[in-house]
């Protein structure tokens, strides 16, 4: 099951003798990513595990929005981020999201109207970064 796959993947990450189990669980997760994202075992994964999953080219998702939603869902249960967020009394998502996880989001892969409609309101990118993004979409 999805839960078992996440648990095996996490538990065997640093076990040299369990490479095959780890690879099998990882591939199962990539193939069933949409189900994995919905499961409670997903939000319990470590930062390194989540970054590894979300950074893959061959993850089975419909669009970059699925990756973004998964990132947000995982982030909201990230205790470290919660502590940073409350200690600095900031709601700045950019400061709270772990860099390795943020780096998994491929902003140029969003449709511009999707970015403006769904993603922009999270205020993750700076003005300069957005300008750069628009220049990519404009094909310059």
């Amino acid at each position: 099951s999805v839960r078992t796959a996440c648990e095996i993947y996490e538990a065997t990450r640093y076990v040299t003798g369990a490479k095959e189990f780890n690879t099998a669980a990882f591939e199962f997760i990539l193939r069933n990513a949409m189900k994995v994202f919905q499961d409670n075992s997903f939000v319990k994964l470590s930062t390194a595990a989540v970054a590894e999953i979300l950074s893959r080219d061959d993850i089975s998702v419909h669009s970059e929005v699925d990756i973004f939603d998964a990132m947000l869902r995982w982030h909201h249960t990230d205790e470290d981020a919660y502590l940073i967020g409350t200690s600095t009394k900031t709601r700045n998502l950019r400061k709270c999201i772990k860099e390795s996880v943020l780096n998994c989001i491929r902003f140029p892969n969003f449709e511009p109207f999707v970015y403006c409609g769904l993603i922009q309101r999270w205020r993750i990118l700076s003005k300069d970064e957005e300008d750069y993004l628009y220049s990519i979409w404009a094909g310059t």
């Binding site: 970059e64 780096n103 491929r106 140029p108």
Partner: peptide
């Protein structure tokens, strides 16, 4: 800016 990985136009195969 170009050094920021999340701004790279990277291939991902969507299903």
């Amino acid at each position: 800016l170009k050094s920021r990985p999340f701004l790279k136009n990277s291939p991902r195969t969507y299903i």
